[in-house]
């Protein structure tokens, strides 16, 4: 049996005109780090390599020829070329939370490391994560109501880990914990987190991530509250 050699995709310059998106980067880790921060569904390609050998970087060439074509990722590492073609799917509408900075009621900026442990230890037997932000005590509180009992984690506004604390009114909002917990992936990668809520209780979590080549990128999470709780109703 005879097979024709597969086309090598090294010289794509003349083919570039076929693509509507071309992106190249020398070190794919800058991209994979960000992808990990937003990856909370299972069907993601996990091929960016755990190359721990220093000095060897994997280069990425990404292209897309338009509707119906697969997303093409070409990775090159130490002379070995990997060509991935991922079938594209119909996009769902991107949700617009209509969260605008003018409507922000409360805002806290803190270093991510102080939130990491609490976020990863959240009692997942609780359906709800309650977030209280207030100019008065407890200032910033995360609460769960699971099988182990009620748990509160309080952060003081005077903490050295809190960079900015601008709360105008006491708000207590409850969110589905299953929606917020996956943001842990972004939290782990990030240096700082900004937490803002608007009048409706919609929460915006903004993570500042520094990639390997010192670029600063932002990942944003939005979530609507499950229900509004009367002030003072918490434990």
């Amino acid at each position: 049996m005879t097979y024709t050699m597969p086309l090598h995709i090294q010289d794509t310059d003349d083919d570039d005109s076929n693509y509507i998106l071309i992106a190249k980067i020398d070190n794919v880790k800058n991209v994979s780090q960000l992808l990990k921060a937003v990856h909370f569904k299972e069907e993601c390609l996990n091929i960016f390599g755990a190359s721990t050998v220093s000095g060897i970087t994997t280069a990425l060439h990404l292209c897309y020829a338009g509707y119906g074509s697969p997303l093409v990722l070409i990775l090159e590492e130490g002379g070995v070329l990997t060509d991935c073609r991922i079938k594209t799917q119909e996009t769902e509408e991107v949700l617009d939370f209509q969260f605008s900075p003018e409507n922000v009621v409360n805002k806290v900026i803190m270093k991510s490391e102080i939130l990491r442990e609490a976020w990863s230890d959240l009692d997942m037997t609780s359906e709800i994560l309650q977030i209280v932000m207030s100019p008065d005590k407890p200032y910033f509180r995360l609460s769960t109501f699971g099988n182990a009992g009620t748990i509160h984690v309080d952060y003081s506004k005077d903490s050295d880990m809190v960079e900015s604390f601008q709360c105008t009114q006491t708000q207590s909002n409850r969110y589905k914990i299953s929606l917020l917990k996956p943001s842990l992936k972004a939290l782990i990668q990030s240096l700082k987190i900004s937490i803002r809520t608007d009048e409706q209780g919609i929460i915006c979590l903004q993570y500042m991530i520094k990639t390997e080549d010192e670029h600063v990128c932002f990942v944003e999470y939005y979530c609507v509250p499950d229900e509004e709780v009367e002030v003072g109703e918490y434990e």
């Binding site: 009620t150 748990i151 984690v153």
Partner: peptide
Amino acid sequence: HGMVKTFYIP
């Protein structure tokens, strides 16, 4: 860093 965790154990 001013963090307080409170557990109400039944």
